[in-house]
Nucleic acid binder design. Sequence first.
DNA 1: GTGGGCGTTCCAGTAGATGGAAGGTCAAGA
DNA 2: TCTTGACCTTCCATCTACTGGAACGCCCAC
Lengths: 131, 131
Amino acid sequence: MNIGEAGQATRLPVKTLRYYEQIGLVRPLRQNNGYRDYSQKDVYKLRFLQRARSLGFTIEDCRLLLSLYEDDTRTSRQVKQVATRHLEEIERKITHLESLRGTLQQLIKDCHGDHRPDCPILEGLSKADKV
Amino acid sequence: MNIGEAGQATRLPVKTLRYYEQIGLVRPLRQNNGYRDYSQKDVYKLRFLQRARSLGFTIEDCRLLLSLYEDDTRTSRQVKQVATRHLEEIERKITHLESLRGTLQQLIKDCHGDHRPDCPILEGLSKADKV
DNA sequence: GTGGGCGTTCCAGTAGATGGAAGGTCAAGA
DNA sequence: TCTTGACCTTCCATCTACTGGAACGCCCAC
């Protein structure tokens, strides 16, 4: 399967497939003309990657998950641990963003947003005790 | 004021101050020996940047906010618009992360996480209809 | 044979720093 | 006076996860 077909089959950009080969995630064989030749197994791995990435796992987590996926002797504990770490990271990010949101909402609420130059947002940014 | 003092005064890493000069955010004068010479105004600008960055504004937003901050003819509407755009972006990110969190929580909940190899997380990643 | 749509490689750029190498400057102490 | 150490300088590389583009090769249909 050429790279274009593999891209369509996985809904991943062709550029991304080349990148994944470059970093050793999915290494297709080559045809005689030098074109990449994606096997069905390669496509499964790419789909796996596509879903793991869309859940926000880093490339290195994906590499690990893929190796667990292909390892018959894995334990579900190992997998769960990777996912749990990732979930915790996401929760940290949410907490952080919610805090930023709260501060911004307050600043925006206080700003009349008209033609005049005085602005609580800029004041908040220029004085620590106002943020 | 040397760069080290400016770093302490703003709680920004020295490397960051050099970077901000490089991208034209805060350009201190130079002493005779070539050392950077941060003025009080530079320090104010750096503090402003530090707070805007910690609220998650991009560097380009910071550049804009800084120019509004220094512009007597600005309107608070302009400032509010920048902040509102940023708030919307943060809300988008929160929504996205919350969705990831929900999916991950479900997968993790379903995984027994013991010594056995069968694992709903890997199954979820390998089959679209399970995610 | 030629045009267009594939494919290839390699290099550069994104955001926002951060790390490190190689070397210059300065003040204090022996 | 010399040296030590803390500071400063520039420049280059690295990180994440791609993405864009140039320059070129391959293949099929007309």
